[in-house]
C-alpha cells in the first residue's frame, strides 16, 4: 500500500433520484487499512453513496477518485458486495460460477477463467467455509450462505478497497461472526472496507471508523469519537428535517405531477 493517494476521495458529491436529492455535498477522504461502517436511518443515502462511488448512478455534481484516479481506471482495485436481494437466486448458476465472476474484471474480453482463477475461487470459498457447497445451485442455500457466496466473490476480486451493502442483513449470528472475521482479516492485510450497516449496537463493536450519514456526512471519525449520543441524535433525529423538507419540496417541484 505504498500509494501516495488515498484509496478513496469524494468531493462535493450530489446524487438525485427523479430530481429529489438523496446525497448532498458529500466530502470524504478515506485512509487505507480501515474497516469503516456507514450508518444512518432508512433513506439516508447509504447504498446510494457506494453505488455513486462506483459509477452505478449518475452524479449531479462532484467527483470521486480511487487512488487518485477515476473509478474506471481503478475498477480492478475496487471490490463490491451488493445487497443480497438485488439478484434472482433462482438463476441457473452454482456457487462456483458466482465466485468466479469475481475474476471476470481481471480477465480480458474473450478469455475464460483459467485454472489459476479457479484455485483462487476455491481458496475464497474455503475462507467463508463454503467449499463443500461449491457445486450447489445457489437457490439451495440459506440466506447466510448466499451472503457468504457474495463475500467470496468479492474476495476473489482481490481488490484493495471494498464496498459492502448490508452484508449482515438477514444472516444468522454464526454467519455474522464469520463475515466480520473475514473483514478484519482483510483490514489487517491493509485493505480498506466500507460497509453499510443497519444495526447500531453491533456497529460500535465491529468498525474502526464510523461514517454517520443522512443525506450528507453528519460525522466521520474513529468509532469511539463519533459514537456519541449527540451525533447519533443528529443523524437519526431532528436536525436534518429542514434538509429533508427542502428535498421533499424539490421532489414535488421537479417530479412529474
Amino acid at each position: 500500500m505504498s500509494d501516495p493517494y488515498a484509496p478513496l476521495e469524494i468531493h462535493d458529491l450530489t446524487v438525485a433520484y427523479h430530481k429529489k436529492p438523496v446525497l448532498w455535498g458529500v466530502d470524504l477522504v478515506i485512509e487505507p487499512g480501515r474497516l469503516i461502517g456507514i450508518v444512518g436511518p432508512n433513506g439516508a443515502g447509504k447504498s446510494t453513496l457506494i453505488k455513486a462511488c462506483m459509477g452505478l448512478l449518475p452524479l449531479q455534481s462532484g467527483w470521486v477518485k480511487f487512488f487518485g484516479e477515476s473509478f474506471h481506471k481503478m475498477a480492478r482495485r475496487v471490490g463490491y458486495v451488493p445487497q443480497r436481494e438485488s439478484v434472482d437466486w433462482d438463476f441457473p448458476v452454482n456457487v462456483m460460477d458466482v465466485v468466479l465472476m469475481g475474476r471476470y474484471g481481471r480477465l480480458g474480453v474473450l478469455r475464460r477463467p483459467s485454472k489459476a482463477d479457479r484455485s483462487v475461487a476455491r481458496a475464497c470459498l474455503e475462507k467463508v467455509h463454503l467449499l463443500p457447497y461449491a457445486n450447489r445451485q445457489i437457490a439451495n442455500l440459506s440466506g447466510g450462505q448466499q451472503q457468504r457466496v457474495f463475500l467470496a466473490r468479492a474476495l476473489a476480486q482481490e481488490a484493495d478497497i471494498y464496498f459492502m451493502d448490508e452484508p449482515f442483513a438477514g444472516v444468522d449470528a454464526a454467519t455474522e461472526a464469520a463475515i466480520i472475521a473475514v473483514l478484519r482479516e482483510l483490514r489487517d492485510m491493509g485493505k480498506t472496507l466500507l460497509v453499510v450497516h443497519h444495526d447500531l449496537p453491533t456497529a460500535r463493536q465491529y468498525f474502526d471508523d464510523l461514517l454517520l450519514l443522512n443525506m450528507n456526512v453528519v460525522a466521520f471519525g474513529k468509532t469511539a469519537d463519533v459514537f456519541t449520543a449527540e451525533l447519533l441524535q443528529k443523524t437519526y433525529g431532528g436536525r436534518l428535517t429542514i434538509l429533508s423538507e427542502v428535498a421533499q419540496a424539490l421532489g414535488a417541484h421537479g417530479a412529474s405531477r
Partner: peptide, 16 residues
C-alpha cells in the same frame, strides 16, 4: 462470460 455475469447481477457487473 459477460452475458452470464450481466444477466445474473447487473450492478456487480457494472462495478467490475
Amino acid at each position: 462470460k459477460e452475458l452470464l455475469a450481466s444477466s445474473f447481477d447487473p450492478g456487480f457487473s457494472r462495478s467490475i
